[in-house]
Design a protein around this nucleic acid. Structure first.
Lengths: 188, 188
DNA sequence: GGCCTACTCTAGCACTGCTAGAAAAGCTAG
DNA sequence: CTAGCTTTTCTAGCAGTGCTAGAGTAGGCC
């Protein structure tokens, strides 16, 4: 009984840590999330954070990154639902770039950390593999092997996300880039 | 007379800072390059660094990043020299990925920093614009506007570089990805 | 030789992630 | 209801970071 309530309290606090950390990171970047400010925001002292995440700040970032992969998978899957060929490619790509643009720091955590997981491998984190499968499904290329083309398409999406975030791309050409991408990878 | 010797001494020390910083960064990552270790390595104290680079560590990283852009431009230009169509695309892409793989931390500095420069704009840093022009020249796509296609191609190259470095791509499929990229962007 | 300028260093600030040991709270048993 | 024990939580501090004010030292000039 007591253990159950205790467990729920701990789970709740863990979620609070992740929620506050994400919120603050989106507001002022990852460097603005310090163990001190984070601890104060949840109403506890620093060591409590290490009780939940022994790996410290980087483990907190990794946890948020995993949540991000789940959200990205859901968003791209929903976007491609029921579509075929180039339309599916365009829709999935658009959803991907939108997620990255709307959650820049979460997205950066998803790729900045040494999570050590090769997308196309079977023994990867299930969430990563799931996300990769969606990309594979919209590469309308029968000549090449699909996983390889998917790796290239994912790279293009990732590059676009990073470079748009860094303001290296012309904002007004966003849809043109998406059309170009869909034309090159969307198959028939 | 004396001023000239003085100026040369200062220039030499500036180069020593950049050289040592790059060396150490390639050996142990950017975090291992601290103002203390860097100052000690060049035989001076920390404030001397700020005499050369008032912006501190980030300005040193920016300076190295600019050198990196110069090297990347030279490497890709040399690779594409005299080639046409898909062959040029493949060669340039290969040179690009090789540079990123051989200079991972310099490459990361080239894109991690807020240098604030949109590649396709005329008023960008000349070095950046020059590098972009090479990419434009190997996009054999007459239907789309070339700069937009070049932005997408650059994104794909950047994404491949980052994700290969992060071990998210299967290493044994590297040439297959390059062929796929050249096939999709190389034109006729 | 004496002075003045320009350079260089020492010492320290404010901040970071992280942790050992003290204090407090809560549960268990008598 | 109290005593003791376990678990949780906090205080205080370490080692390291980027950066800088002011003291000290070297150099060239008259």
């Amino acid at each position: 009984m007591a253990e159950n309530a205790q467990a729920r309290r701990i789970e709740q606090r863990r979620n609070a840590i992740l929620e506050v950390a994400r919120e603050r990171a989106e507001a002022g970047g990852w460097p603005s999330v310090t163990t001190r400010t984070l601890a104060q925001a949840i109403g506890y002292s620093q060591p409590v954070l290490y009780g939940h995440f022994p790996g410290g700040k980087s483990e907190i970032m990794s946890a948020i990154a995993m949540i991000g992969f789940g959200e990205l998978t859901a968003a791209t899957r929903a976007a491609g639902e029921g579509l075929q060929g180039g339309e599916a490619t365009y829709a999935v790509a658009e959803a991907y770039l939108r997620f990255a643009a709307e959650n820049p720091v979460v997205y950066s955590a998803m790729f900045a950390l040494p999570i050590s997981a090769t997308f196309a491998h079977a023994d990867s984190e299930p969430i990563l593999k799931e996300a990769f499968e969606i990309i594979v499904s919209v590469t309308g290329d029968p000549t090449d092997d699909a996983p390889t083309t998917a790796e290239v398409l994912w790279s293009a999406l990732h590059g676009l996300s990073v470079l748009e975030q860094a303001r290296r791309m012309r904002p007004e050409r966003r849809t043109a880039r998406l059309r170009s991408l869909a034309a090159h990878f969307g198959g028939s």
